[in-house]
Amino acid sequence: MSDMIIRTEKLTKIYENGYSTVALQGVDLEIPRGSLSCIMGPSGHGKSTLLHLIGGLDRPTSGKVFLEDLDLTAIDANRLAEVRCRKIGFVFQFFNLLPMLTVLENVEIALMLAGVPPKEQHERAGDLLALVGLEDKLQARPNQLSGGQRQRVAIARSLANDPDILLMDEPSGNLDSKSESELLQNIEKVNERGKTVVIVTHSPTVSQVAHRIYYIQDGRLKREVENFG
């Protein structure tokens, strides 16, 4: 098995909304297994688009995305959903929790989609929420939590199906510095468990924990920096 868990080849994404917007252009990228990487760059230069393509949320206009040896651009929508379910966990800037569900149910739902029986869902979701320090908030609704707590629920949910890769889009974008610091601790904890973490961020604090930083500008990969802390 290759050491690179994620690989892109000449990845290009052009949005057609009456006029063409080039979001990514010929990006070749390799992300090592078990690494903690950051994708940085100015707003609107294609960072999130790259993350969406790596995560199989979107299709490139051209080029390829490999997850291990699987070409994500060559599989159908249902298979792609299966990959998202089993292999990838997502954490978003705005948490994206389901408002009508409790904290516990928000984690359980990811397990439900993977076909885990309700009893096991309950146990595993409880364990994951304990891992992020929310064992006393199981029955709370997302609107009863602080931003930091919501982001911890999102992290617990992203880990529900024990994915190999965790993709985070501006995870500290809506957090204060204390919550950001807690988030980083959780991210490092997850990475130490062997998960590959890819974070899109503007935050220098977040980038400090990364092993590797990719700079995206004008839709192109400008630089790739190894960070030895």
């Binding site: 929508a77 959903a81 994206n96 929790l97 989609l113 199906n161």
Partner: peptide
């Protein structure tokens, strides 16, 4: 719409 997207991101298939 956004919640549908969340379900899709979590691995919800079209059939689901």
């Amino acid at each position: 719409k956004r919640e549908i997207g969340i379900l899709q991101a979590l691995g919800g298939k079209r059939r689901t």
